[in-house]
């Protein structure tokens, strides 16, 4: 509190009442750094594998319609399982146990639904006259996929990636109960100690990460989406 010249005056009162979490963050700076780093690295690991895996699956089921329903069925079931259960189930598997592998696997499964669905939707949203034109000009199926379908599906695929990142960042907090030392730990311990400051600190930091990642991805999306598609996005 010394930081702001003692505990007198309206600002100090306001600070004590509503911004206690700020001084908590300042006090625990080292821990904040460690937890934030762990949080980031978990989210990035999960996103890396999710992108590779689920974009491939999304492309696959857009080609082989019959697999689509199965994939969506699995995705839906995974989505109904509460995060804490998924984490819990993984740690009881002997090979995995407490820790990062279990946490990452559970989160990757969670990412399936929004990612696969959006890849599929994006690819399917390309109207057939455009595909027909591509075929009619003599493009091979792979050229149609890489030069027409994927670039045109980008806005939708990217929307899926952004939703997933925000979601994974949030759910990753729950992994603190299976031993992840990330920002969820502030909330976890905050509950145990009935400390509003700790809980709010954790919540605010996680939200900042989520918003930040979403913002960065938004910038990237703008960069790599063809200007020709932007107007169509605005209309949605």
């Amino acid at each position: 509190m010394e930081l702001f010249g003692g505990s007198t005056g309206w600002f100090a009162g306001f600070y004590d009442e509503y911004l206690g979490f700020v001084s908590f963050i300042i006090r625990r700076w080292d821990q904040v750094i460690e937890y934030t780093f762990n949080h980031f690295s978990l989210v990035l690991t999960v996103m890396f594998f999710s992108l590779v895996l689920w974009i491939s699956v999304g492309l696959l089921i857009s080609r082989y319609e019959k697999l689509a329903n199965t994939a969506f069925g699995i995705g839906n079931i995974l989505f109904v399982i509460p995060s804490i259960s998924l984490f819990g189930i993984f740690i009881t598997i002997p090979m995995l146990g407490l820790g990062r592998t279990s946490a990452a696997l559970a989160l990757i499964l969670y990412a399936m639904m929004p990612m696969v669905r959006n890849v599929y939707r994006g690819i399917k949203s390309v109207e057939w006259p455009i595909i027909e034109a591509g075929r009619g000009m003599g493009m091979s199926p792979l050229q149609i996929l890489f030069q027409i379908q994927i670039p045109m599906a980008w806005p939708v695929i990217f929307a899926g990636i952004r939703v997933t990142v925000v979601m994974i960042t949030g759910i990753a907090t729950v992994a603190t109960y299976i031993g992840e030392r990330n920002l969820g730990r502030f909330i976890h311990h905050g509950i145990a100690r009935e400390s509003a400051d700790m809980i709010i600190a954790g919540a605010v930091l996680v939200s900042i990460i989520a918003v930040l990642l979403d913002f960065i991805l938004g910038k990237i999306e703008f960069k790599i989406t063809s200007p020709g598609l932007r107007r169509e996005q605005d209309q949605n």
């Binding site: 006259p129 455009i130 027909e132 034109a133 091979s140």
Partner: peptide
Amino acid sequence: NPDYLRREIGYVIQQIGLMPHRT
């Protein structure tokens, strides 16, 4: 090869079908 055949035949499709993401 159908793809090569089509590259030798100009095709103006009924729905125009320009690629919206390309100039």
